[in-house]
Design a protein around this nucleic acid. Structure first.
Lengths: 340, 340
DNA sequence: TTGTAGGCGTTATCAA
DNA sequence: TTGATAACGCCTACAA
């Protein structure tokens, strides 16, 4: 490894002022694009800035203005899922696009251990960011409570039960699950089961609740299996269990597309034709859905839209200088393909 | 939406000092765990901190210490890929685990437009972070040049050509591609092609170079197709083209597992048996590899390890207060499964 | 239109 | 062991 010397002391407004032959006040005005600066002064300052290589010191600016121009997105997701959850990426991109246009810097913080959780809470308290968006929070998530306690402009994507006082944006998981289950039942199947998942989150709970509502008298607890994660492997294991418990099963609602993909693999190996013998529906309308064979009928979830809405919720609170609570619900739709 | 009042002015060291009946200097020493503080003073300060609800102001601290305790990870990835590249998540988690243990906060910055690129450069210059790790950079990536110009401790994951003066950690893509191609050839196939990709990055270029080296006299430009992204759809389109150009093709090296998965789908639809008729090998050893039918033979890439190594590279530069350059190469291995 | 100067909340140096 | 007291770099009244 070769090495170079450490970088020299950065130029300050003071240096610019000296180079331009003006006062620091005037330099500051130019930098912040304020009126009441003569064209000559502006030109002099601008060339002086280039000349001395001036870069504003954000720490000093933040100290003075009490703003950072940055907004955090906290992701709390277990290892395995983080690597493949299609929604996270879309939410991230949606959030970023809105913040980018408003000239805010999005900083994503990952929570992958209790230690991370504490450090992130410190970071949020520390004034590094003007607002925060939280995704993948669980019931009683400590970071949610920390955010509520700090009183920083915030928004959840999803709505973890047990945490109040923070705005949120989400979808109606109950209604969406009910709708797709009803659609599945409308194909004439009676023995319909569910591979449920993530019951420690609102999304997981609500999808199960919707399934239950839709099945009504047909509901059979034997036909419901539960797993902690929305993963492909949960689909594999879940479908195996279901097939064992009820060889006569006619339909399956998988709590996510990844789960549905796993279920389809098992059904194929078991020699069950889809949708002829068993109908399968998923949830998310992610990249998985189109890659399945047959293509998956599923619930379209506006993941990027959720990120955008959450970003707007936070920007709005910053603009109005007050914390808001309450929720925004975005629409979902059913995408009917070949799997049921 | 209900709303609450804006938060009140935060407590400062001054408040703590007043409540504890001590000077600000002593309070500061307690907060920073310095020696030469009497047990009584320490206790008084600690209870005063709780009493007034004191939280350190990071902007002020940064201004004074010129450190932020945060390190950035810049991700520059096109929309579609960001959503599914298995390596990004693993690198992220690896980086986070190392930084977390060193008590640094990882902040991930996404570049999704030229505007983002400029803002990120500003953010990095602004003193928000003490170091930066860059992944997915392209040839001549402006953010790479910006980082080099800033002179901040930095490390690339991968090694974009055309940018010097920044440390990097990567794998030997040429050697790995050569090795797996040789293994494919060792199964007795002569008409072997490649679905190449991402030739604007070192990884994409090098994998093609390795393929070429391994095929030697057998190399046939007709059997190489190129695509911009490491995507499933590139695999589909690429395999179709290859089949059209050379119906007698016996083997394919896909530049990534996702591409290989797409190729397998096309081969299945075309009625070609794998590995009997055509052998397929991939690259990454991602979740895709195990989900393929048949399971994919591929190159194992230590994605999390790359993230960890990059983090250490940056921490080391911070500790030694000097910028380093030069590279670290991590080992890859071949995972031979059923697809060839 | 420009200059002056106080202070944001910390840390760190120097006396006491 | 503790207490004053400068900075750190910037913004912003206020005065000129």
């Amino acid at each position: 490894m070769s090495s170079e010397t450490a970088r020299p002391r950065a130029a300050t407004i003071h240096d610019v002022a000296a180079a331009a032959g003006l006062s620091r006040g005037t330099v500051s005005r130019v930098i912040n694009g304020e009126p009441y600066v003569s064209p000559e002064a502006r030109a002099a300052v601008e060339s002086a800035i280039v000349q001395v290589g001036y870069v504003p010191n954000t720490a000093a600016r933040n100290l003075k203005t009490k703003r950072s121009g940055a907004i955090a997105l906290v992701v709390h997701e277990p290892h395995s899922l983080f690597l493949e959850d299609p929604n996270i990426g879309a939410i991230l991109l949606g959030t970023n696009s809105v913040l980018s246009q408003a000239d805010y810097q999005l900083v994503t913080l990952i929570i992958d251990s209790p230690r991370d959780s504490d450090r992130v809470a410190e970071y949020l308290k520390g004034g590094f960011v003007d607002g925060v968006i939280i995704i993948s929070a669980r019931v009683q998530d400590p970071i949610g409570r920390a955010v509520a306690a700090i009183g920083i402009p915030a928004a959840f994507v999803g709505h973890p039960p047990g945490i109040e006082g923070i705005a949120y944006v989400g979808i109606d998981n109950v209604a969406a699950a009910r709708a797709i289950t009803e659609r599945l039942l409308a194909t004439g199947r009676r023995r319909v089961g569910m591979i449920a998942s993530a019951l420690d989150r609102d999304s997981g709970r609500d999808r199960l609740a919707g399934f239950r509502e839709a099945t009504g008298d047909l509901f059979d607890p034997e036909l419901v299996v539960e797993f902690p994660l929305y993963s492909h492997s949960a689909g594999i294991e879940g479908m195996r269990q279901l097939l064992e418990r009820a060889p006569d099963i006619e339909g399956v609602f998988a709590a996510s597309d990844a789960i549905a993909a796993g279920a389809l693999d098992v059904l194929r190996d078991a020699g069950r034709a889809v949708p002829a013998d068993v109908g399968v529906v998923g949830f998310d309308d992610s990249a998985w859905a189109l890659r399945c064979q047959p293509a998956l009928s599923t619930v379209h979830q506006p993941a990027a839209g959720l990120g955008e809405a959450a970003a707007r919720l936070v920007l709005d609170q910053i603009a109005r200088a007050e914390i808001e609570t309450g929720g925004t619900i975005l629409d979902t739709s059913i995408v009917w393909r070949m799997s049921a």
